[in-house]
Computed example of a mutant assay.
Amino acid sequence: MFESKSGILLIGGLGFFLFAFLSNALVPILLYRDMPEQSVEELVENQNLIYQFEDLSLRYPEEFQEHYGEPTKESLAEALQLGHDIYVGEGCWHCHSQFVRPVSNESARWGEVSSSKEYQNILNRPVMWGTRRVGPDLSREGGRRGNDWHAVHFFDPASLSPSSPMPKYPWFFDDNNPSKPNKRGIAIITYVQWLGSWLEQYPLYEDFVPLEEQMQNPLE
């Protein structure tokens, strides 16, 4: 059998399977065995994300106060976890990947190529690398657009992107109004703003404007 063509192909197939298993399963385990998986509470120790959450509390004060109270790290952790669960539950990952691949100049379109250490946290369970890009990759989306933009986009995507096939999510808002995000709406925006917020080149990082100054000069 092993001298026949089918036998050689069988051995080769088993060999490639074993190699794939070792390289894709055991190697990452060995590389990150000393790097514990980060919890949500650890992930909110992030100034970029804190900034966005505080910004939400100022833009939607009544709604924020009703659903989250004050913008503390505890309420941020609650919103971030809920936002993740909504993102998974609504099937957003069916159309959006979260993995910038080192091929085809993807970094020119989406930002820095993804590294495996970025996925060593509870919010990447399940891993949502995805294969379809009906919509853009979102792994570097955080900070690229303001919270108001995301609120309007979730409420009516076509109003900002006329050719977008993304459905509307009116249940993220009270009174069918994009200026009144409810608990789920605030949470999903928080999650989107988290994506990529751990990178040094997070878009708002170098152009940080104190919230007090931002609210005093809203048109600048």
Score class of each variant (00 low, 15 high):
P28W: 14
D174N: 11
S159A: 14
A20T: 12
K180C: 03
Y205D: 08
L219W: 13
R33M: 10
E45R: 13
D207P: 00
S23R: 13
K180N: 07
I29Q: 04
P36Y: 09
F155T: 02
G135A: 13
Y60A: 03
Y87C: 01
P162L: 09
E141D: 00
P102C: 07
E78N: 11
S116L: 15
N217D: 09
G7R: 08
L219M: 07
Q52W: 01
L9S: 04
P157R: 03
N124T: 14
R59P: 00
I29W: 12
C92V: 06
K183C: 09
F53V: 05
R101V: 00
S197C: 06
F2K: 15
G185N: 08
F17Q: 10
C95M: 12
H96K: 09
A20Q: 13
W129P: 00
E220Q: 06
L82E: 06
P165R: 13
Y87W: 07
F21H: 11
T190Y: 04
P203T: 07
I11T: 05
K117E: 15
E118G: 08
S23W: 09
H67Y: 15
L204I: 04
S23K: 13
L26H: 06
L10I: 08
P165I: 12
I189H: 03
E45V: 09
T190R: 04
M166I: 05
P136R: 12
W171P: 00
F154P: 01
L14E: 03
E3Y: 11
Q47G: 12
G7W: 00
P102E: 06
I50A: 12
E212L: 02
G185A: 12
F172M: 07
Y32A: 09
S114R: 01
S4D: 12
D207C: 10
L9H: 06
Q193C: 02
Q214A: 12
Y202N: 02
Y68A: 08
Q201W: 11
L204Q: 10
T190S: 07
T190N: 02
E41S: 05
R109F: 13
P157G: 04
L82W: 04
T131R: 08
S6Q: 14
D174A: 13
Q47I: 11
Y169A: 10
L30K: 04
S197N: 05
D34R: 14
E66Y: 07
V127N: 11
F99L: 15
H67A: 13
C95P: 05
L80R: 03
Q201N: 15
S107F: 10
S107L: 01
F53D: 01
L18M: 15
L82R: 10
Y60Q: 05
V192R: 03
E42T: 10
W171R: 11
N46Q: 10
S114E: 02
Y202Q: 00
S23H: 11
E141Q: 10
G13A: 10
Y60S: 05
F17W: 14
C92S: 05
S39M: 08
L18W: 12
Q98M: 14
H84G: 01
A77S: 13
N176E: 15
P36C: 06
N147Y: 03
S161G: 01
V27N: 06
N24I: 07
S115I: 10
C92R: 04
W149D: 08
E206P: 02
V88R: 02
L9T: 04
E213H: 07
A77F: 01
V88M: 06
Q193K: 04
F173G: 05
K73W: 01
E212G: 06
I122N: 03
F172H: 01
Q98W: 01
